[in-house]
Structures are given as C-alpha cells and as structure tokens.
Design a protein around this nucleic acid. Sequence first.
DNA 1: GTCTACTGTGGTAACGTTCCCACAATGGAG
DNA 2: CTCCATTGTGGGAACGTTACCACAGTAGAC
Lengths: 349, 349
Amino acid sequence: MNNVSGRRATIIDVAKQAGVSKSTVARVLGGSTRISEDARDRVLKAVKDTGYEPNQMAAGTRSGRSGLLAIVIPDVTNPFWAEVARGAQDRAVREDISLLIFSSDWDADKEATHLRSLRRARVDGAIINPVADNFGDLSRFGLPFVLIGSSAERFPDTASVGSDIAQAVRLGMDVLATNGHRTPALLLGPRSRLARARFLRAVHEHCVERDIDPAVLAMEESDYTVSGGHEAMSRLLGRKGRKHLAVFAANDLIALGAMMAVREAGLSCPEDVSILGFDGIPAGAFSWPGLTTIEKPGRQIGIRAVESLLDEIAGRAEHGRIFLPCRLVERGSIADLSAQAPARVAVGG
Amino acid sequence: MNNVSGRRATIIDVAKQAGVSKSTVARVLGGSTRISEDARDRVLKAVKDTGYEPNQMAAGTRSGRSGLLAIVIPDVTNPFWAEVARGAQDRAVREDISLLIFSSDWDADKEATHLRSLRRARVDGAIINPVADNFGDLSRFGLPFVLIGSSAERFPDTASVGSDIAQAVRLGMDVLATNGHRTPALLLGPRSRLARARFLRAVHEHCVERDIDPAVLAMEESDYTVSGGHEAMSRLLGRKGRKHLAVFAANDLIALGAMMAVREAGLSCPEDVSILGFDGIPAGAFSWPGLTTIEKPGRQIGIRAVESLLDEIAGRAEHGRIFLPCRLVERGSIADLSAQAPARVAVGG
DNA sequence: GTCTACTGTGGTAACGTTCCCACAATGGAG
DNA sequence: CTCCATTGTGGGAACGTTACCACAGTAGAC
C-alpha cells in the first residue's frame, strides 16, 4: 500500500520500480496509445508491488477533469429521491466516476451553498432538481448540467430527464374509470409548486379527450405531506351528497394521509372511498389496504440523467428532454364499481 | 463568473486585479494570518469581480487535503441508511466539506470498488459500514476512518458510532412486559449477520436481569425483509397452544411482514397478536395499526460519525466507541393485557 | 543509400494551489 | 544609534499528475 518510506506511492515510484519513465506509466494506465508488451508487464507489476493508486486530484489539476459528478435533490431521505440518487450513483460507478449527493430541502440558500461547493470541487457536471422554478443562474452556470423533475418544463432549451406526467395521469384516470370512477376528486399539491400545474393540466387534457367536463371534478389542495393529505381528505369528506368517493392524490404521502382520514371518519377504504396515489413509495405497500398508485421510474431517471450528463460533458449533446413512462401498481385501495352498481359512481362538485 | 478571456478565474487573476501577490490572496481567503485592512478589502472586491471560486483540486495536490469525505453504507434507498447519510451530509457541509455517498448492497466486490474510488479521490477520511464482519484491510486501510453499525463490535480498537442495542432491547422488553407480555416471541435476522447475535445477546442479558428463563422465548429467523417476516410469522402462528401472541421483531420490515401474515391468517393486530418493531422506518407510521417500534437515531449516528471522523483526521482521536440511545415510538401494535387479563399473557415455547 | 513514416519512449512544461522562506518597514528597548 | 522582534508582504518551490514535443530506432519505398 505504501512504499518503504511510508509515503503513498506516486507515478514516479512506479516508473522507477518498472525502470521506465512516468510518461510510459501514464500511458499504460491511460490505455490509449501503443505500448510494448514488455513495458506494460513491468509497469503493471510495479503498480501492484507499490500499491499505487492514481491521485485523481493531481490528475484533475492538469487534465481539468475531476472524475466527480454531483446531484442536487431535495432530500435523500425521501424514498423517491433516494431512488433517483441510487440510479445515478450506480450508473456513475460504471464510468469510474464518483457522485456527490446534496440535499437542498427545497431551500434556496442551501441550494446555493451546494452549488458553490460543487463548483469548488470542480465537478465535471451536475444533475439538478432546482428548488426555485426561476433557477436563475442557469445560463451562466458555466458547467455541464442536466435538470430533473418538473422544473425542467420551464427550460425547454436545456437537457432534462423526468417522468411522463401526462402518461401517468392518463394511466391513473383510466384505471379509475375502468373501475367505475369516471370523475374522481383530485387531491392536489400546493399552488406554488410547478408540479401541481403540470398534474392539473394533464388531468384537464385527459378529460377533454374523454368528454368529461373538468369542472365537474372536486378538488382539494394541501402540502405534499401525510398531514396535508389527512386535512384535505377531511375537508372533502365534509362535503355532502356523496355515495362512494374516489380520489386521485397527487402524491403517495397525500394518499396515505387521506387513507388515515377515511379510517378516522369511520369509513373504510376501498369500500366507501377509493384512493389512487402517485409516486410509488415503498410505504404504500404496507398500508392497509395497500395503496394502488402510479409508480415513477426514480431509478431510471437517475440512470438516464447521468447518461444525458455524460453526453453533455462530452459535447455530443442533443439537449434532449427525456420523459420516462410511469407504471401502475395495483394493491387494493380502489373498489371495482363498474359491474355491480354503475349508478353509484361518484359525481363531482 | 469568468474573466474576460472566458477562462475560469484563478488566484493569480484575483491577485493581479487586486494589485497584490497570490500569497496575499491566499492569506485573505485562508484567514489565518494578519492582513492589512486595505489589502483585505481589495482582495475581497477582486474575488467578487472575477467570480473566483477556489479550485479545491489544485489546493488538494499541495495541501494533501481534498475537502472530501466518503460514507459507505449498504443502500441509500434504505430509509435508515438514508437517514444516516443525511445526518453525515448535513454535518459535513457545516465544515465546508462535501460527502461522497456509496452503496455497497452488502456486496464485498462493490465495497472493494467503492473503497478504491474513494482512495483515488483522495478523500480525507471515510465512514464505513463494512459488509463483511471480517473487514480485512482495516489496519492497513491507510486512511482515517470511522466504523458505523454492528460490525464495529468486532473492532474495539477503532473509532465507531452505533446505536445502543442493549438499551434498545431493554426498552422493548420493558414496554412489552408493562403491557403484559413478559415473554415475547423473537423474530430474528439470519444467523450469518452479526447484528443478530448482538440483538439476541441483549435479550438474554435482559432476561437474566428480570429473572426470565431465555429458553422460554419462542424464536423464528428470517431475512431482514418483509417477505422474510411474513414467512417467519406464519411459522410462528402455525405452532399450537397460544392465546395472545406477542412478538419482538429484530427489524421493522420483519415486523411489517409479520403484521401482514397475521391479517392473512384471519387474526388481527393488536387484538390477537402484539407486534414490536425495531428501526423506526417511516413506513411503520402508515401500516394499520401503526407499528410500535424502537427508533434508532440514524441521523444522529451520521452526525456523530462525521464528528468522530473529523477528530480522527485532526489527530485528536480518542478512538472512541460511541453508542447512541434509541427511542420508543408507540403507535398501537401492542395490546395492553396487563390489567384486564393477566392470565392470558403469552408464554413462550 | 537516403528519405519517410511509424512506433515506442523520455523529458519537460503546464495545472492552480499551499507552504515556506526571505525581506522591507516599523517601532520599541538598550 | 544599534539591535531585535513584529507585522505584512512577495517570490518561488512543491504537490502528482497530464499534455505535448522531441527523438531514437526500425522498416519499407524509391
């Protein structure tokens, strides 16, 4: 691991040991140009003997490449984002690249701090889910980057990877309709968030296609949290004139909160209320009933983001905007009212 | 952000602009020695004007410090480990240090790959949850490091941070006893894992203290997964001669799997079966009933690990072994049989 | 036999910092 | 007035690589 003097071995130590110049060692390790078999063998042996590990920092000063990528997400502790980070990390190691993971907590100051850190570390590129929809420094960011998440929408000229919300919403509305819930109530996120508008627009588009008046859909809004969903659902249940109620939640946490509210109101899911979530977080598998939901391809998003970023760095950029399809996960929180009692289908408003 | 020529500003650009030497700029930014107010002002202005961001790689080549730390955990996607990583990250940013997060998937090869990457990146230190209990290269690791998780036990001479399993088990056994379940069945992890032995030993110690014959406790073992818990619980339910059954699961996933098995057997929790989990994963809050569990201080473990590592790096190491206390989270998966029917308390075996 | 192309190699200048030594200016003690 | 310590500053070596140029040796073409 170390050479005799206790220092870490450098390329020069290897060169001496192998009886060649450091240029030759670099070439063997770099692998691009032709090397005599004899030299290669001697170098490889010397590398092993000395326990030489290339110093990426030193290499970086000269080459300008740090071998580091960064990803800035809201929170690694959030299962969806953890999945994204994990995908990105796995893809990066395949290229012998290490990944710095930053959590911004939807906080512009923290984001700024992280952006500064990543710049100082001279990362080769960054994958960013901007907290503010007006991610200002974008054009003068001065670093290859790829956007992930809903804010990508605002920047059609930059590379981005996200999930196909329109397809997801279509999937959700269709499974609800198939089960006899043509006009579900909507549990939306807060007005300030771009994701909300995107979700809502997709619903509207789908309604138009299916000849449903969007105005007929009941709506409640809340934070993207369990307690938010709980409150929103309580408000919804407070309205009168319903038999079976079906809700499409903009996020799984809202859906789980809604499920709790239903139970506390003395009703049960899916008998009295059908609930459809959105995200595909693992916790949805453990609720009772299991949460039927639309799963976003978090891992894939991470993987594709890295690939896109690699393209961007290499200059073979097409500034592509990638939208990955979502998947329906049926677990039992939706009642099938299509056959037995089509007349009891909930109507909105 | 860039200077006129389009290059990134260097310390020399700043020095020129401020009319001082690069040494002076370095001193202003480093902040250690005394500087004339005049010089400081000019430098700070020049830094702002040029948009200078120090090049950490270049600094690292000379100083030997990369400003990078690494953490190797089994999986960021696992809520507990995500929490640990998050704590570590938050603590690291406070020191202006960036954190590389690696997931080893309990795979020795992946771990080796990550260890090589982190060495090449010349991280200043590493926080490691070794996959193998015989983490071999430990002594000749040649890098400051801190161990986290149960394997720390095997290496009493190295710094480590973990949760206080003995205290946690005491907490769990006591809450069970208080509710009338003095001799719960144990749902353990696989024999190969060190964590299992630690858990079991703590239970035994506690039993001795409380005058309970440990042999009386029923035991089942499985993977640390939902399906594992499901199977183990099914086997347990298959045994005869029980009234109310109480189980202490070695992990929340096992507990959630057990809860599912109970429901599928036509029984209900907590009426027929009391379940106590261990970990404190968020999903436990969404099950029905909510899972009563012992919460490990994941975030704190991450924080303390970084602090310990920082000590290690600075040489003010005490090679401390830190065990953080766990916390009981009561949610309703344990029936209180202490008052109404003490005779119905489950007996093991 | 000379020229040319190619192959493998060595030497050296960057890269952008930090670290260390030198030194001028200042001021107080003797 | 001389000496010495202190304060602020500058200059250059060093860190371990990569990039680039130079060049020796070989072989084929004419």
